[in-house]
């Protein structure tokens, strides 16, 4: 009986410890995603750069479609057969 109580107590502590580790990590992750206020100017620069990487992808897409457009139009200039 004593062994059973001890085992339950240890198991319960184990779950508590796991929960204690998980909860702060989740909270920290959420805070990083949602905040735009960072610890230092250098951190601000790094965070802005990460955001701009996504913006760059969109600019790359604009470039891609404009290049296709230029190809569409320049090769068919005045050609009524297209």
């Amino acid at each position: 009986m004593l062994l059973l109580v001890f085992a339950l107590a240890v198991g319960g502590c184990g779950r508590s410890a796991r929960q204690a580790r998980v909860v702060p990590e989740t909270t920290t992750t959420s805070a990083v995603v949602t905040t735009t206020t960072v610890a230092s100017a250098a951190d601000a620069a790094a965070a802005a750069e990460a955001d701009l990487a996504t913006v760059d992808l969109n600019i790359d897409q604009v470039d891609k479609d404009m290049n296709s457009l230029d190809s569409d139009l320049s090769s068919d200039e005045g050609d009524p057969t297209k």
Binding site: T37, V38, A41, A44
Partner: peptide, 10 residues
Amino acid sequence: DAEARLQDGI
């Protein structure tokens, strides 16, 4: 976000 972070840094 990028604009806000740059302003924060400045």
